[in-house]
């Protein structure tokens, strides 16, 4: 079983965690100005890199807090520092 290091709790088993998707999709600055195509991109399109990926994770069966992490999608290894709060 893979161990993931929660910034607050330390290394825990992966089943305690929940992936929250890419941490690189900001909410539109001016939502009223968005076209349908812009909305489609914001709602549906996410980066799907083969390699380093900046992601949200939640320690959902532990302290229940969110953090941002860098993970390599080729190896599924966590490669960067875990950051509390904003990515």
């Amino acid at each position: 079983m893979q161990l993931i290091r929660c910034p607050w709790c330390g290394p825990r088993e992966e089943t305690e965690f929940h992936p929250g998707g890419p941490a690189t999709v900001p909410y539109p600055a001016d939502p009223a100005a968005l076209s349908d195509a812009d909305w489609a991109r914001f709602v549906f399109v996410r980066p799907n890199p083969k390699g380093p990926s900046r992601e949200w994770w939640a320690h959902s069966a532990g302290c229940r807090r969110w953090f941002a992490a860098e993970r390599d999608t080729r190896t599924h290894r966590f490669t960067g520092p875990m950051t509390a709060g904003a990515p």
Partner: peptide, 13 residues
């Protein structure tokens, strides 16, 4: 697996 990945291996859980 809930997380994305290209590694052609999944979680044991």
């Amino acid at each position: 697996d809930a997380a994305t990945g290209y590694g052609q291996r999944g979680s044991f859980s």
